[in-house]
Design a protein around this nucleic acid. Structure first.
Lengths: 195, 195, 195, 195
DNA sequence: TATGAATGAGATTTCATTCAT
DNA sequence: GATGAATGAAATCTCATTCAT
């Protein structure tokens, strides 16, 4: 039944989804839904949490061993595998990242930031391996937001080109993000030319 | 009055915004809003279009001369200037980008894709300058989605850290995106190691 | 401009007609309409009155001389000529006869009953010629309602078969109504058979 | 509750009736009305259909046996019984007949024409009994519209004189319509005198 | 005088949420 | 414990009607 709700929310958006449709789709009655989740918001938050949990676990498991580069590559692979296999959940997660910043007043903050935290940790470990701590944690965390944004951008585009293979998405992201990131970690820094 | 509507839509989302609130905020009566824009959807589309237009123009103007690198840098600066000065419009735009083609059945397709098109053109020109056409247009366009996603990610984070200076965001993005992109254009390619 | 209003009211009905459409169709501004007629109801009543007046005059003129039979025939011809030449006015008149009994609280009563009065007078004169006063005025007036109803029924049907000639409608009505009416005037009376 | 809606529609007309008033009159809440009938139009159509059904059945049952004359008499009696016992339903039906095919785009066409069809069949059978087929079906159907119009005219007048007995209305109509119709069936034909 | 601009009031309709069985 | 039936509140939208110029 969570799955039904997830699909409905992903397809219609939070406001567009109706509790009637969810209950009917799940084959139970509306009062049951309410007895389980209390409210529409409760149901939605439960969904987001479940998706965030699964998402986080997948990425974490896939990025838990090997060299830094290998772990990053593992994480990216897990990311797109998740997009592919768990499309509705991913849609909810990234849509709320964009649209729901104001709604639910930060209740989703923790869920949403777990992925960023995970990646930031990864990057920090890479930096530590390289013996570089010139870039403070905050800088790394910032870049991680760009990184996650890039993932979302590619994922979104993938939804419009579902016939492309997953591997292609993964390679694109790695090439886009890693090369530059590696340069950064090796001390290269871009600055605008003086006029 | 467009400005009021923009703020309300940005803060509450399309469904959450009520025409009552918009009219009241603008100090006019609801029927006036309807006489100007015909419907809620009409008002919203007008807002998105205006924002997209402004956005596109700003970026285009700022990226219209100089070397490829300079133009990219100009575009990125324009991007974050827009985020800073025109926060509500940007919020609406990137939310629309995230909500995808679901609502309004593709009526916004053209507006939404203009930025990606612009950036893609920029990147293609860069590639042409370097004499590289090994990466076909489709590859470039894909990476552009990643690029725009990275911009959104950094912009979103910036909203939560409004005290950081704009220049910092711009540098972060350029360092994140350009170094790697430059490597790509110079023929470097990341591939996973054989196991 | 009355003509425009007439067409709009006839085509859309009282509620369906909008003052906007009427003003625009007439090429003047809404406040002008209000300065002439005061309100939607005022405009409508003016229309009904004008139509009733014209209608009544036409029928009266056409039934003002000759034998009783000739005068009835003249009246019927005038009726259908009116339907043909003045379709919108007739539509308003008969629709309100049906629908507006409750609205406007009898303000239309006088207008609507003028035709019945005219015909009743005609019939009474016929009866007087025949030297029959066995049927009191009230009976005659009642039958006149049936008569007018028959006219409306045929007129309505004619609107759905506009290619039929006017003469055919006139003959039908005369044959339907006159033969029986003549029998009545000659003393014949139908009564149910005793069981 | 159908009955309440029927009364409100009959008294106020389709546009004048408000769902608020109907719901309140029926002692239930508006959403209930919508859950039963889906929309205002749905409710109205249901009412018209129910009335048409009942009406048709009553008349048909009452005119199903005996000589042609007896059957016509039975039908007329049923007609006015219906007017008496089911006043609101009848009001809605004849208003719909008058409003014509304008609204609901012919969805009521079948319902509205059933009574005319029934009477036309009756008349055709009478004609057949008399061995006369000189009048083609189309002529009979035309006269049926006049006949039904006469019924409506008398019925409408009756609403303004509710103290008159039903039998009087029935006799009036039979005398008005049958005598002439019988003459027609016996070959008499009225034609205007040559000038 | 004539009008563009404005509005108050009310229409239908939807939906998250809860009783009563 | 489960549900069909019910509803309060609010949404979008329309339109007859009137100011202010």
């Amino acid at each position: 039944m969570l799955n039904v709700a997830e699909r409905v929310f992903a397809e219609r958006g939070y406001d567009g989804a109706s509790m009637d449709e969810i209950a009917e789709g799940a084959g139970i009655s509306k009062p049951m839904v309410y007895s389980y989740f209390g409210s529409k918001e409760g149901l939605y938050l439960a969904l987001v949490r479940r998706a965030a949990e699964n998402f986080h676990d997948s990425v974490e498991r896939a990025s838990s061993s090997g060299t830094a580069e290998e772990r990053l590559w593992g994480g990216i692979q897990a990311y797109f595998r998740f997009v592919e296999e768990y499309r509705w959940g991913w849609t909810i997660l990234y849509r709320e990242a964009a649209a729901g910043a104001n709604r639910f007043e930060g209740e989703l903050e923790a869920d949403r930031s777990r992925l960023v935290d995970l990646l930031a940790r990864l990057m920090l470990e890479v930096a530590a391996e390289k013996g570089i701590d010139a870039m403070m944690e905050e800088q790394i965390r910032s870049l991680t937001h760009a990184f996650v944004g890039a993932c979302e951008g590619l994922g979104r585009r993938w939804l419009d080109h579902p016939d492309e293979p997953r591997e292609l998405q993964e390679l694109r992201l790695m090439n886009f993000a890693w090369l530059g990131f590696r340069d950064l970690l090796e001390g290269e820094l871009w600055v605008p030319k003086e006029e």
